[in-house]
Simulated assay, not measured.
Amino acid sequence: MSTTQIASPRVALVTGGSGGIGRAVAERLGAEGMAVAVHYAGNRNRAQETADAITAAGGRSVPVTADVSDEGAVTAMFDRVQETFGGIDVVVNTAGIMLLAPLAELDLDDFDRMHRTNVRGTFTVSQQAARRVRPGGAIINFSSTVVKLTLPTYAAYAATKGAVDAMTMILAKEMRGRDVTVNAIAPGPTATPLFLEGKPQQAVESLKNMAPLERLGEPVDIAEAVAFLAGPARWVNGQVLYINGGVA
């Protein structure tokens, strides 16, 4: 177990923290006693609602904004978090987009959009996190179970998440001697707008029944795993954790 003295209170930055899984993660980390910076890209009101919910529960939280693919904007966001809370201990990259089509039919502009957010965005945020997270901290990226499931229409999205897997495992080794863990969470089908949008009910039911538990995941299920990696899981490092109810 790490002997590093962890700062108290700890500070977390959650990208994509204004809704869906990101909001559940931000609120759970707030409940764990962390001060939470809630990142948003375009909807400040939703980020403020998340921050207000954390504050109402007795925590500390502020909304912060950046285009995660923009190096300068991400640097400024990290600066603000450090200036507001005095440091950073946990960085969670939930920000991402999913655009589906058969590989032969996918508009390459859509592929580039996903790559810019899911790959470049994760890389840019992870780069700042690697430079700033304090000893005893954690960097947690977001992959996806579809990397293993190889479902039709998911080729481009899964490709971006495969890239996240690779950079996560390599960064964990590059952080040698820093006492900072680096892992990825790979959710399965989870009841969020990102997942449900545009899917017919029959498709949703089919995906739900893939899990032995016969339900979709909920954002709070994923947030539990993030809280584990952000807190007590100091010997889990360089891993991709599949949080999917047994789908794969």
Rank of each mutant, 00 (worst) to 15 (best):
T117A: 15
E71N: 06
V90Q: 02
P102M: 05
M77H: 07
F123Q: 05
T65I: 12
A73L: 10
A66C: 07
R113M: 10
R113Y: 05
D89C: 03
F78W: 04
Q128L: 04
S126N: 15
S126G: 10
D70E: 14
A130W: 02
T75S: 11
D107R: 01
A66E: 02
T94V: 02
D70T: 11
A66V: 13
D89S: 10
Q128P: 03
Q82C: 09
Q127C: 11
D110S: 15
M98K: 07
D79G: 02
V74C: 03
R113L: 05
T117Q: 14
S69A: 15
V125G: 05
E105W: 11
R120I: 14
I97V: 15
P102G: 03
P102Q: 04
I88S: 00
V91D: 03
P102I: 09
V90N: 01
T84E: 12
R120K: 13
A95Y: 07
T75A: 14
R116Y: 01
T65V: 09
M114L: 09
R116K: 15
I97Q: 00
V90W: 03
V92E: 04
M114G: 04
A66H: 00
S69E: 14
S69M: 14
L108P: 01
F78G: 00
L99N: 04
E105K: 09
A104C: 11
F123D: 04
D79C: 08
Q82W: 04
G87L: 05
G72C: 06
D79E: 09
T84R: 03
D109G: 14
M114Y: 02
R116S: 14
D112R: 10
M77Y: 05
N118Q: 11
I97G: 00
Q128C: 07
Q127N: 08
V90I: 13
V91H: 03
F78Y: 01
H115A: 12
Q127E: 08
V74F: 02
V74T: 03
T122E: 09
T117C: 11
L99S: 02
A101E: 07
F123T: 10
T117G: 09
D89N: 12
H115R: 12
I97N: 01
D67C: 06
A101K: 06
A129C: 00
V81H: 00
G86N: 13
M98C: 13
G86R: 08
T65Q: 15
D110Y: 06
F78L: 05
V92S: 08
N118P: 10
R120E: 13
G86S: 11
R116I: 09
D67P: 09
D79L: 04
V92Y: 02
D70S: 14
A129G: 01
D109E: 13
M98E: 11
E83Y: 06
F78T: 01
Q128H: 10
D67R: 08
G87D: 03
T75P: 01
A130C: 09
G86D: 09
A129D: 00
S69W: 09
G87K: 03
F85Q: 12
R120F: 08
F78I: 06
L108E: 00
V90M: 03
V81M: 02
S69V: 12
F111I: 12
